[in-house]
């Protein structure tokens, strides 16, 4: 392993090395929160919010720069005493309901919850009836 940091950094054309690299000389090192309860609550809220620059990942999971900042925002807001609902409302105000990884159970969205449940319940009733009607008697 050749330690050639300087070499690569100087060789790196701006088009080659991307934003995550370039962003670093501006951003102060991120402070990792030591508070584990806060960290857990941050993760809870962040895992329900969709990362705008990724595909389907939550901001809790995504390693992208924007997601990290959004997660940081969630952490700060929680620490400042905001409730998870207030934080979600802020992000909905900016990104629309798209930002919620789980649609709110209201209005049209109810369908996505109700349809599978209907199938399970209806199917269970059907299978029970079917088994009753199509089983040989015990005495056989």
């Amino acid at each position: 392993m050749v330690s050639s940091v300087g070499l690569v950094f100087s060789l790196a054309a701006p088009g080659l090395l991307g934003g995550d690299l370039a962003a670093q000389d501006a951003a102060a090192p991120r402070v990792a929160a030591g508070d584990s309860a806060l960290e857990r609550r941050t993760r809870e809220v962040a895992s329900g919010l969709r990362c705008p620059v990724c595909q389907g990942l939550s901001i809790a999971d995504s390693p992208s720069e924007l997601a990290l900042e959004m997660k940081g925002l969630v952490r700060e807001q929680l620490a400042a005493g905001k409730t998870p609902d207030q934080i979600r409302a802020y992000f909905i105000g900016k990104y629309g309901e798209w930002v919620l990884l789980e649609p709110k159970a209201e209005g049209l969205n109810l369908l996505v919850y109700v349809l599978p449940l209907t199938l399970v319940v209806g199917g269970a009733l059907f299978v029970i009836r079917y088994v009753r009607a199509n089983s040989e008697k015990r005495n056989s």
């Binding site: 501006a26 705008p52 924007l66 900042e69 925002l73 990104y95 629309g96």
Partner: peptide
């Protein structure tokens, strides 16, 4: 610096 304005503007 910390993309806060970008988040405020709902940037994708």
């Amino acid at each position: 610096p910390r993309t806060r304005t970008a988040i405020d503007y709902g940037l994708y």
